[in-house]
Nucleic acid binder design. Structure first.
Lengths: 358, 358
DNA sequence: CGGCAGATTGCATTCGAATGCAATCTATGG
DNA sequence: CCATAGATTGCATTCGAATGCAATCTGCCG
């Protein structure tokens, strides 16, 4: 019966030619069945007799057959690929997120295409690279413009933002409650007696940074504290380090002590930079002389030299939510959008005098 | 002339159906040309008249056409995808490598499929996920067994190891000269007068770790120093931290001072952990009381609390080499294998008394 | 104006797997 | 032993772009 299939398979694909990969036709030929049978054997839940399955699998194993995902994607219109956009990978916070995301997508048998954006301008170029691959969905831990988001709509590509928003726009997102976190930090510092605050913010364009900053300032105002000096950084160690001297220079005059007693940093790495500058350049140590808090809960926040008081983002739960949300949007494109916001967990380290409870 | 093309395009693909993406047929139809013409317009260097190109591009723009990379890959047998395998992403060293790799591949118009392996056992499963996608090549910053490598050979998938080897096996690789780095560190410490060394190694299975350790021990022996206590860690901060007490407990008795005067750590993060433990638990600070050196040159090594003396891996050059090597293997599958080894650069911090020599 | 080389264009086929439909097989019941 | 419903299987087509080949067009020269 094997003779029924076309001979070209045998002739053209000897073991001497440029090494074409094994196809379902090859397997079918060897097993003496049709190509569709082979295809069905590799599709869960398809109608195949035990005998057939055994023959086909034996042949497939013998030839080392692997279904071609490219061909499959073409016909099924499902690539089983998702794109993950990350704005700047060297930010200590993202590797953990990325690792979790890939792990979870793998569980769904979905592959991750990684794109690392260096700037807003990259977004355009990156999207152009994504569309041709017909990804099933996208997770964006990077800023996208409303126009970009509209493109997703138009192309019916599910999109889930990770820690980003697009103000009122109808998009799905998973994020950490930055405002709540900022309030927790402010409250704890306030209760512990701090009254002279300073803010080290993220870069002007960072939405997350703005949320943290705004919430902190609002809360401080509610507590009757105005006139909070704000210094703009860029999430880097150096910026946290350098802002300390800016802050000191900015101080009115008081030579006797630090001009502020608590610094709220936009992220952990800046807090770490600030702590170092305070100690190295000014001989001030936390929490005795001054309090410093961060945000994110990255690994180094737990290093003993810093032991930051910070808000730990629940990365596990957030990534689980993001992946789950994207997958269900892929399954059901009609589903409506959803925003899930997770509260951060306070991690009380020793970088600040802090009083969490009532 | 548009009437010449099949009408099904018009009928089936109205604007009401489940939203199929725009295809080259749609563009061809609108422009009144053949599908092949459209295809040629999107292929650099194809034979197309200016007039034709203009018409097609106009139609394509009007419809928002994006070539389908999946379909293209099927026929060209080139997916323009590469897989990057990374053994454990949360190791501080890898995010930088990963960011560089994606950046460079992007320049070649190649997309990166990311796989993060958590253990050796994952390698099998991961490879199974890779084959169906017919990636053009793979960069492995993870251990693979000879059997795995044989699979690459068999399937003619170019493979470049990043900081891994497979003893004598004929594979391409890019790596940092671990031995040389270890020697530089030993020499510098020795010249500065250190004589009582200890080693904090990476996990037993880590090839890189073994190289660093072996080279250090050999060099020490050449310098007449035997009996070097070796403690096994796992590259983590905690392991570096904890090994300090192991080391102290292991010391003969001398209560007066540290049992060793120089610790060679397998990577920066362990060195950082060690520095913290020494300071916090034993009141010893570097470089006065003891010297600690790391390896890699990750960002936190430059943080002022640590300011590590370490070997900085030339990540830029290494990733450039890896990407270039893989791309040329893809272009020319016949090319022979190549190993490129880059020397690390000594970064002299203040975590060690150190004399780099003439 | 005829002829010819080179440039363009279209036709038809191909890549490899999935799937609707029809044909065939199997098991069951009468 | 036959009919019939349900399970299997094969056939033929499809997904969307690339490309060898042949047909057509252009421009240039004599």
């Amino acid at each position: 019966m094997a003779e029924k299939t076309q001979p070209r398979l045998v002739e053209v694909k000897g073991r001497n030619r440029p090494a074409k990969a094994v196809t379902s036709y090859d397997v079918a030929h060897l097993a003496g069945v049709s190509q569709s049978a082979v295809s069905r054997c590799f599709k869960p839940g398809a109608s195949v007799s035990a005998k057939m399955r055994a023959r086909v699998m034996a042949a497939a194993a013998e030839l080392g057959y692997e279904p071609n995902a490219i061909a499959r994607s073409l016909i099924t219109r499902r690539s089983n690929l998702v794109a993950v956009l990350i704005s700047n990978l060297t930010n200590l916070y993202y590797p953990e997120v990325l690792a979790e995301l890939t792990r979870r997508f793998t569980a769904y048998d979905v592959r991750v295409l990684l794109f690392s954006l260096e700037s807003e301008a990259d977004a355009n170029a990156t999207l152009q690279q994504i569309w041709p691959y017909r990804v099933d969905g996208v997770i964006a831990a990077a800023e996208l413009s409303p126009d970009h988001v509209a493109e997703f709509e138009k192309r019916h590509v599910p999109l889930v933002f990770y820690n980003r928003q697009l103000n009122g726009a109808p998009v799905s997102s998973v994020s950490c409650d930055q405002e709540d976190g900022a309030r927790q930090l402010v409250d704890g510092l306030f209760h512990a007696g701090h009254r002279r605050f300073a803010l080290f913010t993220g870069p002007r364009e960072s939405v997350v940074g703005i949320e943290r900053k705004t919430a902190a300032l609002e809360r401080l105002e509610e507590l009757g504290i105005d006139e909070v000096p704000v210094f703009e950084g860029n999430y880097s160690y150096e910026s946290g380090f350098n802002l300390v001297s800016d802050m000191m220079a900015n101080a009115v005059s008081s030579n006797d002590e630090a001009p502020v007693d608590a610094i709220l940093c936009a992220n952990d790495v800046m807090a770490i930079g600030a702590l170092d500058a305070l100690r190295v350049d000014y001989g001030l140590t936390a929490p005795t002389d001054i309090s410093v808090v961060g945000f994110d809960g990255v690994g180094p926040a737990r290093w003993r030299s810093y032991d930051l008081t910070t808000i730990r983002q629940p990365v596990r739960r957030m990534t689980e939510a993001a992946v789950g949300m994207l997958m269900s949007m892929i399954e059901d494109p009609e589903a409506s959008h959803e925003k899930r916001v997770f509260s951060g967990l306070l991690r009380a380290g020793t970088s600040a005098r802090f009083d969490a409870g009532e």
